[in-house]
Design a protein around this nucleic acid. Sequence first.
DNA 1: CCTTGCCGTGAAACGCGTTCCATAGATTAA
DNA 2: TTAATCTATGGAACGCGTTTCACGGCAAGG
Lengths: 323, 323
Amino acid sequence: MTNIRDLAREAHVSVTTVSRVLNDHPYVADDKRQAVQAAIQKLGYIRNQTAVHLSTGQTHTIGVMLPFVDHPYHAAILQGIARCAFEEGYRFLTWQTNYVESHEHTVLKALAQREVDGLIIVSHSLSVDEILQYEQYGPIVFCEYHPHASSVYINHYTAFQKGLKALQSLHHTEIGICLGRPDSTNSLARKQAYQDTVSDDARPEWIYEQALTIEDGAHVARAWLNQSQRPTAILTASDHVAAGIILELREQGYRIPEDLAVIGFDGSDLAVVLNLTTVAVPYETIGRHAFSIAISDSWQQHPQTEIPTTLKNGTTASILCVK
Amino acid sequence: MTNIRDLAREAHVSVTTVSRVLNDHPYVADDKRQAVQAAIQKLGYIRNQTAVHLSTGQTHTIGVMLPFVDHPYHAAILQGIARCAFEEGYRFLTWQTNYVESHEHTVLKALAQREVDGLIIVSHSLSVDEILQYEQYGPIVFCEYHPHASSVYINHYTAFQKGLKALQSLHHTEIGICLGRPDSTNSLARKQAYQDTVSDDARPEWIYEQALTIEDGAHVARAWLNQSQRPTAILTASDHVAAGIILELREQGYRIPEDLAVIGFDGSDLAVVLNLTTVAVPYETIGRHAFSIAISDSWQQHPQTEIPTTLKNGTTASILCVK
DNA sequence: CCTTGCCGTGAAACGCGTTCCATAGATTAA
DNA sequence: TTAATCTATGGAACGCGTTTCACGGCAAGG
């Protein structure tokens, strides 16, 4: 493997000059520049990026921590990160943690070990304080709302409220909700929105937890079927869950939305094919913003960027469109 | 930032000994080992991975080239790679190329520049020969069949044939197919399977190309509607396209499968919610295999690993299940 | 004519962990 | 008892690009 010292010898210049040519530094005479370029051609030189990384102390790489890469919601954020990273000449490393804390620590350590210049945390189970201890090693940007950290987020409180109010405007008073991991930041905000919005009508047995997948949705549907007092509408925290509920109930001969109105969350392809009413979230935008904060200096101010959501009409909340 | 020389000074040993402690080398006396560990604690030393990479000439990182990260099919492969990478203590970098050749070159250059130890190519538009020129810099594993390269693949010919034969066994003789990028390796194999399997009934106007997304599926449906001679069944190359066709036709008042039988491809969530008959592909398995080949020495023999597919019954090819 | 200041160039240090090689005492095999 | 190993340890080179600093030359400002 030829290196810049070989080039310097070949071109009869110093390594400094070679480095200048490589980095387009202006203070190089034309003849020397050409001599170096000729040497590069002749010896087939290829720059060793690892050496650059060590020398500059930067890897031009951002790490992404997320529980699963194959959930459409995460994939869409990755998409945004990927786009932005490419444009900026950055790379990104993805770590799938499955919400295992030791795995999350591995990721944080990678920042400390300077494997990456910064970290984007899509979702996590470690406490924010614990994570923020690593901020001394580089920027950490959350894709969730955290008041004392850089965060790009959607307001799950108002987003959920949007869904609930839509159901109320369709004269539903008996409304249930589905949540994912019950103690996650997002779930807490959603639960709060539920309690505040339906207030007197809020019922603990109408809060279905641990609902993340299509199968979980089917479980929810069966739980609903077994209840003596059933809500007439359910707002879910993901299109997958909404899909599971709808499929299971249709299977059992129930009609959507006549027997149960359902609203999804995400605005995924599933919502398109099932014509779900859903709270659409621009995940790609979240990824883009998170990335650009991670590579700028602005992260030090812990900027808060709220990304708006929109209610997208389908036919699962009401045959008539929700206005 | 403290480094191993600081540690050596603090612990009154040589840097070599420090390095040995860090790497669990046996030839270190217990007292020295403890002295070093104490120094690590005291000075808060954190290993600089970049220096390790430069020194060892390995990055413990594999690059993944794919056109889009948010397609479920690619996300599932990534999932497999992510799992395997984590288990092996490797990292992976994802590059989204959008099938742009210059972007693909960027990825290949990264291998040459030793940013990654190897490359997994999920899908590409550059020629295989061009890509293989970079094999001198490290392993390159394809997730498609290429006889002269390491590849982990599903046999698109037999997989497609499976779908076609299922339709034939349902007494369809007028069968159309949807393809993605018409000249991709996969499409060529599929086209061949089509021509061989339906032979006399193959019709160029029943080969719908450039069909990749749900919307593309809707286009196909409209094209089908406008044809005077229509196939009675369509085998698609992705569940998205199948979904698009079905939704558009249902919208127009047609019935699936009575008016048109449809079979998808991938075995994605869409297939689940629409109860699609589909050719299920274990993408995660592909990712796992590709990764383990990339980090072993076996790639040099250009191993060929075929991953089997299965036909999954739904209700879009026949009300009765396909046997 | 002298002082700034910019241009062009190179030696050497730097970032930092790994590893080859030499050294020396302690064992074990012969 | 001697030769051959094994254990333990350190110096120094290595991987390789970047950057600081110093220096000579030359043009513009005063």
